[in-house]
Amino acid sequence: MIRILLILFLALAPIGATVAQESDECHRPPTQELADYKETYVPQEFHWESFGWEIADVIALAIMLAIGSLLSVRHLQRHWFTALAGIALLYFGIVRGGCICPVGATTNFFMGLAAPELIGKLVAVLFLLPLIAAFFFGRVFCSSACPLGAIQHLLSRKNGIQLPTLLNKILRLIPIALLIATAWGALRSGIFLACKLDVYKPIFFTGHAWFGQLADRVGEGSMEPGLLIVGNLLNWLVLLAVLALGIFIPRPFCRFACPYGVLLGFFSRVGLRKRHIDAESCFACVQCTRTCPVQAITADREKRNIKVSDFHCVQCGRCDVTCKADSFQSPSPYPETRFPNIGKN
C-alpha cells in the first residue's frame, strides 16, 4: 500500500506543479519588452557549495560503509539494512540531491584520468571509498549508502520475480557495455553518457530543491517562489515506470544499468571476504535463491550444489534471514561473528 501511494504521489507531483505555475502566471503583471528587460536585469551571484558539505559527504559515506560492513559481517537481519537505506535516501538522495551518484562518480573518475585538474581530491575519495569497502567486505555500498540502491531496496517486494537464467545473463552485459561507453565518452570528449541514463534524477533533484526552499524559509533567505519540480513529464513517466518495475523485479537499475556496479563487483570478486554456503548444514531447500534480489545465488538441487556470486552479491542480508539451516558463512580473514539464532524461525 505504501509503495502504491508513493508512486501515485510521484505521478501527480508534476501535474500539481504545472497547475501552481499556471495560477501564478495569471496574477503576474505584464512582461516588459525584451530591450527594457536586458537594461534592468541584474545578474544574481552564484554561491558555490560550501566545502563543509563535501567534507560531510566523505564522513557520512565512511560511517555508512562502516555500519554496512559491520551488519554484513555479523549477518544481521534485513530490517537493519532497510533502516540504513532510509538514512542514505534521506541524506544522499534528498538533502544532497543524489550525491554521491555512483553513475556520475564513474564519469568523474575517467574524466580525472584525462584532466586531473577538473576533478577535486574529495571526488576521488568518494569514488574510491566504496571500492575499498568492496575489497574488504563485499558490495556493502549498494545496500548501505547508495541513494539509487536505497530507493530500489525500499520499494522491492520480499519475493520478487526471478528472471530466466539466460535472460538474466544477457541483461547483465548491459552495465559492462555502459561502463566501456562511459569511459570512452569521458576520456575522449567529456560526455556524461551514463548520467543521461540515470532515471532517478527527477526525484533526487526535486527533493534537493524542496530541501533548499525549506532551508531558505527557516533561515529567512531568498526563496524561489512556487513549487519546484525538476524534469519534464517524460522524465517523470520513465521514473514511475522504473519504480513500478522495481516493485516486482528487484533492483533493475543496479543489475542492468549501473556501470559503477561492475567496478564494485570486480573488487568484491578479487577481495578478501567471500560468502559461501556450508555444504554439511545446507539441505538444499533453495529458498535463498528465491529471495536474493540480484539472483546472485545459483542452485543445483539434485547435486546439492549452491553457490553465491561475490561479483553480484550486494550484501543485503536477505539470504541470512531466509536460511533456516544457518548455512551462510563468511570465512577468514574475519573471525566468525555470526549469532546462531539469527535468521531462524
Results as ranks from 00 to 15, higher is better:
residue 167 L to K: 05
residue 107 T to Y: 08
residue 232 N to F: 07
residue 184 W to V: 15
residue 151 I to Y: 00
residue 56 A to F: 14
residue 146 C to K: 03
residue 254 C to S: 11
residue 19 V to T: 13
residue 194 A to W: 03
residue 283 F to L: 12
residue 154 L to P: 06
residue 82 T to F: 06
residue 316 C to V: 12
residue 167 L to H: 02
residue 271 G to M: 13
residue 149 G to Y: 01
residue 198 D to W: 14
residue 165 T to Y: 06
residue 261 G to S: 08
residue 76 L to W: 11
residue 219 G to W: 00
residue 191 I to W: 12
residue 319 C to E: 04
residue 61 L to E: 07
residue 288 C to Q: 03
residue 248 F to M: 11
residue 166 L to M: 11
residue 220 E to Q: 13
residue 171 L to F: 10
residue 308 V to N: 01
residue 218 V to H: 01
residue 71 L to E: 02
residue 245 L to E: 01
residue 77 Q to H: 12
residue 117 E to H: 04
residue 149 G to N: 04
residue 29 P to S: 12
residue 116 P to Q: 09
residue 54 E to C: 09
residue 124 A to D: 09
residue 146 C to W: 03
residue 142 C to H: 05
residue 25 E to H: 12
residue 279 A to W: 14
residue 149 G to Q: 05
residue 320 D to M: 10
residue 342 I to M: 08
residue 257 A to L: 12
residue 251 R to Q: 06
residue 281 S to F: 08
residue 6 L to A: 10
residue 81 F to E: 01
residue 86 G to P: 07
residue 252 P to F: 02
residue 229 I to G: 01
residue 225 P to F: 00
residue 160 G to T: 01
residue 246 G to H: 00
residue 251 R to G: 01
residue 311 F to T: 10
residue 290 R to S: 12
residue 141 F to Q: 01
residue 112 G to M: 03
residue 111 M to Y: 02
residue 242 V to I: 14
residue 231 G to S: 04
residue 118 L to V: 11
residue 153 H to Y: 13
residue 27 H to Q: 15
residue 151 I to F: 02
residue 40 T to K: 07
residue 116 P to S: 09
residue 56 A to E: 11
residue 135 F to H: 06
residue 302 E to K: 14
residue 8 L to E: 04
residue 260 Y to A: 03
residue 302 E to T: 14
residue 198 D to Y: 15
residue 4 I to P: 07
residue 24 D to S: 13
residue 307 K to Q: 14
residue 79 H to A: 09
residue 272 L to T: 10
residue 265 G to R: 00
